[in-house]
Amino acid sequence: MSKALRLGLLGGTFDPPHLGHLALARAARDQLALDELRWVPAGAPWQKAGRVLAPAADRLAMVRLLVDGEARMRVDDVEIRRAGPSYTVDTVLALRRERPDADLFLVVGQDQYARLHTWHRWRELLEAVTLAVAGRECAPPQAPAELAGVAHRMVAIDLTPVAVSSTAVRDAAARGADLRAHVGAAVAAYIERHHLYRPSTPLPARS
């Protein structure tokens, strides 16, 4: 009998993707012995409807630049091609139909785990995947109270914290700062070339 495909999914807005995302992806791929880790940029992230995002095509391009050359990783534009809000459960169930024999791991951080009960059809999602959770500050993952009594599969990912966030990168880009240490040279060059995250009016100089 052949071994079941071990497939990881890492979704997100990726506005922009940064080296913290890449560290999480590498840790999940290696520690879970994944045959493949798919990055799935959200097309229309419904929980961030109140914020202006970089165009989906740019976010997709930046993810592809970030993971270029990474073994056993690929970028899936399914949520960008799909009309309407981007619901993780729709992506997972479609993949389950495509690969019913696969072991599916949904890779998340502790912050996403803590609010997973707010996700669309979250109980159905939990039935379809094993959660692969990176705890905060090297601590073991902690299930929120809303999930404590709900049966679900969870494995921990050991991840050394990376001091970077998409918010911080956007703020740095707005100031015209060098982003290479946060997003890598290729993504930094893309942000610069396409003038992403630049304010429409000049920012005041910092004292």
Results as ranks from 00 to 15, higher is better:
L5N: 12
L5I: 14
R6K: 15
R6E: 04
L7N: 10
L7A: 14
G8C: 11
G8K: 05
G8S: 11
L10Q: 07
G11Q: 02
G11R: 01
G12R: 00
T13C: 03
F14E: 05
F14Y: 06
D15I: 01
D15C: 04
P16D: 09
P16F: 01
P16Q: 08
P16T: 05
P17L: 01
P17T: 01
H18A: 09
G20P: 07
G20S: 07
G20M: 00
L22M: 12
A23H: 09
L24S: 09
L24H: 11
A25R: 14
R26I: 07
R26F: 03
R26T: 08
R26Q: 13
A27F: 05
A27P: 14
A27N: 10
A27T: 11
A28K: 08
R29C: 09
R29A: 10
D30P: 06
Q31C: 06
L32S: 14
L32P: 14
L32V: 15
A33Q: 15
L34M: 10
L34E: 06
L34I: 06
D35F: 08
D35M: 05
L37Q: 11
L37S: 10
L37V: 04
L37T: 02
R38C: 15
R38V: 12
W39C: 07
W39R: 09
V40H: 04
V40I: 15
P41T: 04
A42L: 00
A42I: 01
G43N: 12
A44C: 09
A44Y: 11
W46I: 06
Q47V: 11
K48G: 02
G50S: 15
G50P: 00
G50E: 11
R51D: 04
R51W: 00
V52M: 06
V52S: 15
A54H: 00
A54I: 02
A54Q: 03
P55C: 12
P55G: 12
P55E: 02
A56L: 10
A56N: 06
A56I: 02
A57P: 03
A57Q: 12
D58M: 08
R59Q: 07
R59L: 07
R59M: 05
